[in-house]
Simulated assay, not measured.
Amino acid sequence: MLDDFLLQFFDDQPRRATSLYLLLTGKKTLSVLFAALEHQQLQWLHLYPTLSRPDFQAAIARLQAAHHLEKTDLGMILGGPKAQPANLPTAYQPWMGVHTFSPKFHLAVQMLSEASFHNARYRPVTQDWAIQQQLRQWWQHIDRQTAISELKTLLEVIGDESATVLLSTMIGHDFVGAGQVDDISQIQALAQLIAQLDAGLASSWQALWGGRKALGTKTQYAALQMIQQGATREQVSQRLRLKPSTINEHLLTAAIFGADLPLARLYPATMLTQLNQADAHLNYQPLLEQVPDSDFFQIRLFQILCLQGRWPHGQA
């Protein structure tokens, strides 16, 4: 049930409902990602891309009416004990591209199944022309029996329970499953399978998956690369013809996703000393006041790295 699913994302730390909705549906703004980092929920980025805003808002309203959630000035908090986990898909990671791989995976299974029975007349599980084109290209470069054998191995590796769940979604010759993954157990099963592809298993299916998905944009990576190569934020702004605020957001987003930034060139030594003595749990405005001459970028980066355990405390 949607209500139980959403409830487990709240605790006694205020959480803005809209920010949670945007996280689950895949919005990657700095504010959404930073809030997710604060609540240790970054893993769930793009977990539920089909969740409609009206359904989400109705569920939040029901939880409030039942006093399971309480509204504060800073966001929603639990109105009672912490909810028990509703079997979140622990194998899931945003870089897997679970929801973009799903239609390709199901069409590939259907093609292999129908080909095994020499049937060329069937309705494809997806009508997306671009996906069909990708699968035609994939089909030309694989050995069908190898792909079938690899799929059997993948299902064995992920275990009987997950394999059964995944099989229930498949469509093939004289067999009609769901044709997609749309609940937690199905997402978990497909994520487990993708984890095996990421580990190097099943080359045919690796080719179909295409590897880890970039979480940032090309412009974000360009800005990060320039900074890492010695450019200043101002120089990056000029070279990419973007506002300084946009460059700051690109770099902070990259940091949230784990990128290393050259702190010695982004902070004067005296500021590093001041930040080492500051409380990273404060909101950024009090920190700005505590650290003279600092800007939002420097304070937010400090907070991000502290939350990740990557701030070099004691070094200046």
Rank of each mutant, 00 (worst) to 15 (best):
L2S: 04
L7W: 05
R15G: 11
L20W: 05
L23E: 02
G26V: 05
A35E: 12
Q40F: 01
L42W: 02
Q43R: 10
H46E: 09
Y48P: 01
P54G: 12
P54V: 05
P54Q: 13
A58R: 00
A59D: 03
A59Y: 10
L69F: 01
G75A: 00
L78R: 13
K82A: 15
A83M: 08
L88Q: 06
W95E: 15
W95A: 01
V98T: 01
T100Y: 03
T100N: 06
F105I: 02
H118P: 09
Y122F: 04
P124G: 13
V125T: 14
A130I: 14
L135Q: 04
Q137W: 00
I142Q: 10
S149F: 14
K152F: 11
K152A: 15
T153A: 12
L154K: 10
V157L: 15
A163I: 06
L166S: 08
L167T: 04
M170F: 02
I171L: 14
V176Y: 12
D182V: 07
D182H: 13
I184K: 11
I187N: 05
I187E: 10
L197C: 07
G200R: 06
W205E: 14
G211S: 08
L215C: 10
G216A: 08
Q220H: 14
Y221W: 08
V236C: 08
S237E: 01
S237R: 01
Q238H: 15
L240S: 02
S245V: 06
I247F: 00
I247K: 00
E249H: 02
H250I: 10
I256K: 13
L261Y: 04
L261G: 06
R265K: 14
L266S: 12
A280H: 01
H281M: 06
H281I: 03
N283D: 09
Y284M: 03
Q285Y: 12
D293I: 01
S294N: 00
R300C: 00
L301P: 11
L301Q: 07
Q308S: 02
R310A: 13
P312Y: 11
P312E: 13
